[in-house]
Structure formats: structure tokens, C-alpha cells
Design a protein around this nucleic acid. Structure first.
Lengths: 234, 234
DNA sequence: TCCACTCTTTGCGCTAGCGCAAAGACAGCA
DNA sequence: TGCTGTCTTTGCGCTAGCGCAAAGAGTGGA
């Protein structure tokens, strides 16, 4: 790694939540232990069930974490964007990856070996505290999704999944909100089938709530979907 | 706190996973920041939606973490036993408790204020790494439960919930396995209704797989339930 | 530009499991 | 011990949503 590239990656690193609040010296040490990775579109970071060997931080691109059932059904656990860590759970001894991580677009990432990142986390409390915060946030979201799946009808769940996309950092606040997810994606995120998602979208389009497209949904009014999600009068 | 009580609690602390690997001196510092709490049976540690102010570690007794929906439905997120931390997510800034924590039996616990525990975690990398590991383990379980809820029929999910109880540390390995959970508890843990749990239990009892009782289920053969959970031939 | 593959929509039949109601059983407290 | 409240069981009617099939639309690569 050349000096200029180091500086550039250091700047990038300092803006990644996992590394927030660390000194430039600490960042330097952390970067020295990192490896640069390029994953092609549709390529895999790792597969579910494999020994967990590396932590990744996505620098550029989009990826997905999914779980596959023995029967071949797929559930989307999380969508990842730039700055997101991948597989913090590597710090668990003898952990296997509980999910498959696949690049949705071409991805640039940094990776750290398990022993390496574990040592760094033990050494730098702030680093592991940041990791704890990020896993906690994902855990909170999963708890909510579990509760929703257990207690709410499909329409509300789909509305919530759309709202979660809109609310992601970096996405614009102004309507219309363009969401590039297929019916199958939404189905895998909400525990239903693509047919049910399609029927729901068709119904919403007839009501003028969305503009539907292939792999795409445009939401006209955020509050409408908030009301659907919360089962409030529209 | 008298000297003897300190020593006794210190011994207890050193066996709590969250404090594993810390020096006696570090444990001393941590204990100095702790408060002792007694929660009566059916009493609350905290309620969902409240500002998250304290982390707790259960010393004795059993408790439950639940989420309640606006419609009054309840989902059991986690069952807690001695040594379990409660609300590690307090380290998130401005967090609200995402769940309600209620004592199932009389409980003894230690608590730490948010700022206090956050500072300790930043200071002692091992402490926050331990916290990260524990949240990660719970997160992994929730991921699995989500996938199961999204893709599996009720019978399998109930079988899995029973297996999880059997597999908890401290529970005997030898059949018969006694599980003290009501039909309603199991329903709240598996996203179904008490009627469906009851029907399933009746069916299993007729097949000689369990002995059913009020608030109780005794499992005769672990492997039978493994096969049900994995949808394998019996 | 054309073709193949994938995504989307819609009709339709089916069922797993929900939820109400009633009756019986059981545990805890006065 | 008796009573009350809660838990469990079972019958029954109902439906949300599954899943198959077919047709149409759209995208990407040669």
C-alpha cells in the first residue's frame, strides 16, 4: 500500500462508525492489520456455516446477509452499504458464519483476521464498545422485526420494510422515495411470498400510494406508509 | 457493603460471563460502581420505551424480556437466569429499553448506571468485548428464531423452543427433561397462540412423546424433538 | 437488434392456524 | 378447606396468505 493510498483509506476509516473516536495512531495500527478485498458483483464474502475467520468493513458497494434453510428458502437478514461492518460476531470463539454475505454490486472492503481484530478490540476499549453498539443496533432491529412477524399482517410488514429503507442514512428525506428492491427481496425481508408482495403492491398502486416498477417501488407519501405500518386510519 | 459480602459478591462476579477474564483489581473497581437490587416476584426491572438508564446483572432468580404491541400482544424475547446481563444496550446513546424486564421469581441483581458502565467498558477492553460476545450470541439466536418463524410450521417451532430450554447451561442432560413453561409462554416464544400450542402438546402426548401438565412439559426423548425440529423422519 | 432469462401480475384452489366459546382442571390464598 | 382465578383442552367456523400455473413485461448480453 502506497503512502497516498494509506492516507486516503485512513480518512475513510475515520468516518466508519466502528472506528469512531479512535486516535489517528490507533487507526494507523488498525489499518496495518487490514487486508484490502475486492468482491465482484454477485460474489461471496463468505458462506453460512463456514468457520468465521474474518471481519470485513465495506468501503464501497452494497451487499446482503441472508440465511438459507435446508429446504432452500432464503431470508434476508440485513442489507449492507458503505461503512457497514460484516461479521462482527467473528469475535466469538469457534464461531461459524450464521449467514451468507453476498455482494449485490461490486464491493471494496477491508478485512481483518479473527485473532487480529479480537486482540485490537481487547486493546482498544473504544473499538469493541463501538462494535458492541453496532451489533446492539442490529439486534434491536431484529427484535422488532421478530415481533412484527409474530404479530402483524403482511401489508404492515411490507410497509415497515419500505420505511426502513427510506430511513437509512444517506437516503433523501424528500418524497418521492425511490426504493430499488424486487418483490422477491421484499418477500425475503418480511417472511412472505413474492406473490403476496406483488398483490399488495398492485393494490397500493391502484390506490395511488406507490408507483410500481420492475425491481423498484416509488413511494409518494411517507406518512401514508407510517399509517399503514402502525395500522392507523388513513 | 461489609467486607464479607464484598468478597462473596466478588466471587460471584468472577463467574459471570460478562466479567470473565478481568483481573481481581478490575472486578473490585467494577463492583464499587455497582448497586444491589432486589426485585420481588412479578416486579419490573424496567419497562419497554423508558429511557435506558441502567445495566443489570442477574445474580439470582429468573426473569423475562418481553415486547408488547400496541394491540396488547406479548412476545417473549428472552428468558433470563443467574449470571445473565440485562440491557447491555444501555451503552447506546439515548437508548430506550426495547423490551420490558420482569422478574419471574424473586430476583437479586447488581445494577450500574449507564455512564458508569460505558466508562468502564471504554477503559477495560475485555469488559466491552465480553459484552459484545454476549449480545452477539443473543443476536444469533434471534436471527435463527426469525428465520424459523418466517419459514417453518408451528410444530417445528415449538419443538425448537423446547430444545432451546433443554440446552440452556445448567439444565440436566438426561431424559426425562422437565420444562416449566405454560402453553401461553410457549406461544409467546414461537409466534403462535396458546390454543395451537395446546393442540400440539395434546397430539404429542397421545404419541407418547411428552407428559403434559399445567405449566409444565416433560420430554421423554431428546432426539424425537430434534427430528421434529429438523423435519426429519421419526 | 434479438433472444433468453427473470421478474411481475393475476386467477384460483387450498389449508394451517387463528380466535371464540365452553367446559374442565389445578394452584394459590384466605 | 373452599373459593377464585387462571390455565388447559377441545369443538368449530373462518380467513389470510400460500403456492401453482399461466401470461405478459422488462432487462441485459451477444
Amino acid at each position: 500500500m502506497s503512502h497516498d493510498l494509506d492516507q486516503s483509506v485512513l480518512n475513510t476509516l475515520s468516518q466508519v462508525s466502528l472506528f469512531e473516536g479512535l486516535t489517528p495512531h490507533q487507526l494507523q495500527i488498525i489499518l496495518q492489520a487490514a487486508h484490502h478485498r475486492h468482491i465482484p458483483r454477485h460474489g461471496y464474502f463468505f458462506h453460512q456455516g463456514e468457520e468465521a475467520t474474518h471481519l470485513y468493513v465495506l468501503l464501497q458497494g452494497k451487499a446482503r446477509l441472508t440465511q438459507i434453510t435446508p429446504e432452500g428458502q432464503q431470508v434476508i437478514i440485513h442489507l449492507l452499504g458503505p461503512g457497514d461492518p460484516v461479521a462482527i460476531i467473528v469475535v466469538l470463539s469457534h464461531a461459524k458464519y450464521p449467514v451468507t454475505a453476498r455482494a449485490h454490486t461490486h464491493c471494496d472492503a477491508l478485512s481483518w483476521e479473527r485473532d487480529s481484530i479480537t486482540r485490537l478490540m481487547e486493546q482498544y476499549g473504544r473499538l469493541s464498545l463501538n462494535g458492541l453498539k453496532m451489533v446492539s443496533e442490529r439486534f434491536l432491529e431484529m427484535q422488532d422485526r421478530y415481533r412484527e412477524l409474530a404479530t402483524e399482517r403482511v401489508e404492515r410488514r411490507i410497509a415497515r420494510a419500505l420505511l426502513r429503507q427510506i430511513n437509512k442514512p444517506g437516503n433523501g428525506r424528500a418524497a418521492p422515495h425511490k426504493i430499488t428492491l424486487s418483490r422477491q427481496d421484499l418477500a425475503e425481508m418480511t417472511g412472505t411470498t413474492l406473490y403476496t408482495v406483488s398483490r399488495t403492491c398492485s393494490s397500493w398502486e391502484q390506490q395511488g400510494l406507490i408507483t410500481a416498477g420492475r425491481g423498484r417501488i416509488t413511494i409518494c407519501n411517507y406518512t401514508d406508509f407510517l399509517n399503514i405500518a402502525e395500522d392507523l386510519p388513513r
